[in-house]
Write a protein that binds this DNA or RNA. Structure first.
Length: 219
DNA sequence: TATTGATCATAT
DNA sequence: ATATGATCAATA
């Protein structure tokens, strides 16, 4: 699929996918649907990228580069509420002390997001899951201030050398969780004495409660 | 059941 | 190795 030339075109394409199953979308792209999603966790996200004409598949840029729009598929329950948190970005542990909210990767990633809900009941086969109505979101001023407060708390702790004290319990909208192939993976981060320590790579995620509130505005 | 911590595949 | 796409699975 070629890249959409405008937000309006992107939205039309996304609306056209609503109600269709993963199998139907995959069939049109001649892509086989994995039988075991445990071995294909990113399958639906990549599939919808291709179906909509995303350009930055594997690069560190918005999915729709020319439009500045990031795509997020979001697994939902029957009532439409998210089942999972939403991964935002890897945390640059070693450099985070130099960053500010205004120029942070979190704020850049979330500036414009197209959420595409996907049914995700565990007992519903991957191919049978239906896509939902898309929601094109930018943070409201209130959203931005909540995200900023979380960023300042979490980035502040990490930058001050307290990465090991940051658990998934912190943050109202944003949280910090491991983001690695294995818990044995290591990355360097500052310690409290100005030296380096080795710790598991981490990412920023949006809490499901936050995305539930955001999506609730659209429906 | 809700949430946190751990993990899987692929591309560059 | 690191970033992309996320969901799995153990714990509280």
């Amino acid at each position: 699929m070629n890249a959409p030339e405008s937000e309006a075109e992107l939205c039309r394409r996304a609306r056209a996918l609503a109600g269709r199953t993963v199998f139907e979308v995959a069939e049109k792209l001649a892509v086989p649907v994995p039988s075991d999603q445990r071995r294909a966790k990113g399958f639906v996200g990549t599939l919808v990228e291709r179906a909509l004409g995303a350009t930055a598949a594997t690069r560190s840029a918005p999915d729709f580069e020319a439009l500045g729009v990031e795509l997020k598929t979001i697994p939902v329950r029957r009532d439409g509420r998210p089942r999972e948190s939403t991964f935002v970005c890897v945390i640059p542990l070693a450099r985070i002390a130099e960053l500010e909210w205004e120029t942070s990767p979190v704020r850049a990633k979330l500036a414009r997001v197209l959420f595409v809900p996907v049914e995700a009941e565990p007992d519903l086969a991957l191919g049978a899951r239906r896509l939902g109505s898309p929601a094109l979101w930018s943070p409201s001023r209130a959203d931005d201030s909540v995200l900023r407060a979380d960023w300042e708390e979490l980035a502040g702790l990490i930058g001050a050398g307290h990465v090991e004290a940051v658990t998934g319990h912190l943050g109202r909208a944003l949280q910090v969780r491991p983001k690695a192939a294995s818990s044995r993976d290591r990355r360097r981060a500052p310690d409290a004495d100005g030296a380096w320590l080795a710790t598991v790579p981490r990412g920023f995620y949006l809490r499901a409660t936050f995305t539930a509130e955001v999506l609730g505005r659209f429906f």
